[in-house]
Design a protein around this nucleic acid. Structure first.
Lengths: 68, 68
DNA sequence: GCATAATGTAAAGTATGCAATACATTAATT
DNA sequence: AATTAATGTATTGCATACTTTACATTATGC
């Protein structure tokens, strides 16, 4: 019932097809976490959300959206 | 060891001294959660962070900062 | 066909966000 | 001084983010 969506998978491919592994390393989390996030299995903490946005060089809102 | 800070308390006073109770109601959480957040006792979920930003009418980054 | 890279699935354990409840303290007003 | 509003402290409990480890599947290239 969360209202948070993300564009991680799309952003990965927009960024020269960055692999899940590489994104995980850049964001300082495990590959499993990236997989789960892409599949919408859970919503990241704010800290991880910021790190992922940083890994892509975009703002948090460009990666994660709140569907009010 | 989290690197997340917030400006909730300042924003409350910038918004006609909104009380913790009123902010809690607008954000859909309890007053205890607002208190704990202001005291830096924990970091909110992304969902709550978005709701708080909405309550103030600002972006998430204007409320929460990642100290890289 | 085989090797390798990329992605996916599964399960167990730790840490913590947040609610809920109850009580204490500090203004501010009359 | 007494009342009320605002803020703070403390505790219990549940849900879930995230890690770790291990194994399975699906490309892609030689």
């Amino acid at each position: 019932m969360t209202r948070i969506t993300n564009r991680i998978r799309r952003l990965r491919f927009d960024h020269s097809e960055m692999t899940q592994e590489e994104l995980a390393q850049r964001a300082g989390c495990t590959r499993q976490t990236i997989i789960a996030l892409e599949q919408g299995k859970y919503v990241p903490s704010i800290e991880l959300a910021f790190k992922i946005a940083l890994a892509f060089g975009v703002t948090l809102e460009e990666v994660f959206q709140y569907e009010g």
